[in-house]
Computed example of a mutant assay.
Amino acid sequence: MATTLVAACTGTTDHAGAPSAQPRAARSGCGSPIDGGPLPEWARDGFSGDTSMPHVMGDGAAIVAALFGDPLTANRTDGKANKILWVAKDGSAGPGDLVIDATLDGPGETARRTVPGGPGPSIVDLPRAGCWRLRLTWPGHADTMDLTYG
């Protein structure tokens, strides 16, 4: 099923979830910034010590993708996985899945992935290298971000 993505907001956020001064439209090209600093405080449950790791904040600051598989790679042959821990800011969502509708920047190829049970641990493989625009939906919530696969 093809899905057209529409940006949910026009700003980006810093790693703490505060709006940044750089509007999304001002960014050159595709790709949400990967932050290597500490995870936002609300995303640290289950972590101890230093929580610095590669992560991408959703454009609406409703979800963060902790990238255990950084760099993300299409057609992996290195024995690693594209492991992503999805952490929603509002953990009060009802039961249901996290649905990821991804569209490749440029050609518009689409892919749908589902994380059973909602935001949490996942392996998200996408079919081709490039910048993928993700529309993320889970019960009562939605956000967007771009992830680049090499």
Rank of each mutant, 00 (worst) to 15 (best):
T4C: 10
T4A: 13
A7I: 01
T12P: 01
T13S: 15
T13P: 05
G17M: 03
G17A: 07
A18F: 03
P19A: 04
P19T: 04
A21K: 12
A21N: 11
A21H: 13
Q22G: 09
A25E: 12
A26S: 12
R27Q: 13
C30M: 01
S32N: 03
S32Y: 10
P33C: 07
P33T: 14
I34D: 05
G36S: 06
G36W: 12
G37W: 02
G37K: 01
G37F: 05
L39C: 06
P40S: 05
E41C: 03
E41V: 14
E41Q: 15
W42H: 04
R44D: 00
R44M: 00
D45R: 10
G46W: 00
F47H: 15
S48L: 13
G49W: 06
T51Y: 03
S52R: 12
S52M: 00
M53V: 11
M57S: 02
A62S: 11
I63D: 00
V64L: 10
A66W: 00
L67E: 02
F68R: 14
F68Y: 14
D70M: 09
D70E: 14
D70G: 04
D70H: 14
P71K: 03
P71Q: 05
A74K: 11
R76M: 11
T77Y: 05
D78E: 09
G79E: 02
K80I: 01
K80R: 15
A81M: 06
A81N: 09
I84C: 08
K89F: 07
G91S: 12
S92E: 00
G94W: 04
P95Q: 14
P95S: 15
G96V: 06
D97W: 04
V99Q: 04
I100Q: 12
D101A: 07
A102H: 00
L104M: 09
D105E: 13
G106E: 00
P107T: 13
E109V: 15
T110S: 08
T110N: 14
T110L: 02
R113Q: 14
T114L: 07
G118C: 05
G120C: 06
S122A: 15
I123Q: 14
I123S: 14
L126P: 02
